[in-house]
């Protein structure tokens, strides 16, 4: 099985689009249930959530504040999974609860090599 990266993109900049603490709790619960389901299939490799601030470095190497903001949607987190194929990975990604929100997306990318371990 190959490994795939699922990048979760959502609007973390526009004020009105941010969830209330109660909503966030519901979202996190849904998210954890989704991840648990993947793990139950032994397809979960690792997951990382990101805080909303950030810095961007371009070729002049002068850091700019804020996440990469050419577009409204930024990466909120990513998880690595094992999947049989791109389609299989996309199917898993389609169940991601962030897709309940308009404008959000999950990008599915294949990882080039996973041959090293300790």
């Amino acid at each position: 099985m190959d490994q795939y990266l699922l990048l979760m993109r959502l609007d973390i900049i526009t004020k009105e689009a941010q969830p209330s603490p109660e909503q966030l709790q519901v979202y996190m619960k849904q998210y954890h249930e989704w991840v648990a389901g993947i793990a139950a299939e032994n397809k979960f490799v690792s997951g990382t959530a990101l805080s909303t601030e950030g810095r961007v470095l371009q070729s002049d190497k002068v850091p700019i504040d804020g996440p990469f903001a050419e577009i409204k949607e930024s990466i909120a987190g990513f998880i690595t999974i094992r999947a049989e194929s791109f389609d299989d990975a996309a199917k898993i990604g389609a169940d991601c609860p962030i897709l309940n929100g308009e404008g959000n997306s999950v990008e599915v990318r294949k990882i080039t090599s996973v041959n090293e371990n300790g």
Binding site: Q3, L5, L7, R9, E70, I71, E73, T80, F86, A89, A90, G93, A94, C96, L99, N100, G101, E102, G103, N104, S105, V106, E107, V108, R109, K110, I111, T112, S113, V114
Partner: peptide, 23 residues
């Protein structure tokens, strides 16, 4: 990890498009 350049994007309503995120 490094990623292969191609990819798929899933959007609400189970809309799947080919290619990496290209906004």
């Amino acid at each position: 990890n490094r990623l292969f350049p191609n990819g798929k994007v899933v959007k609400p309503g189970n809309v799947v498009t080919d290619g990496p995120y290209t906004e």
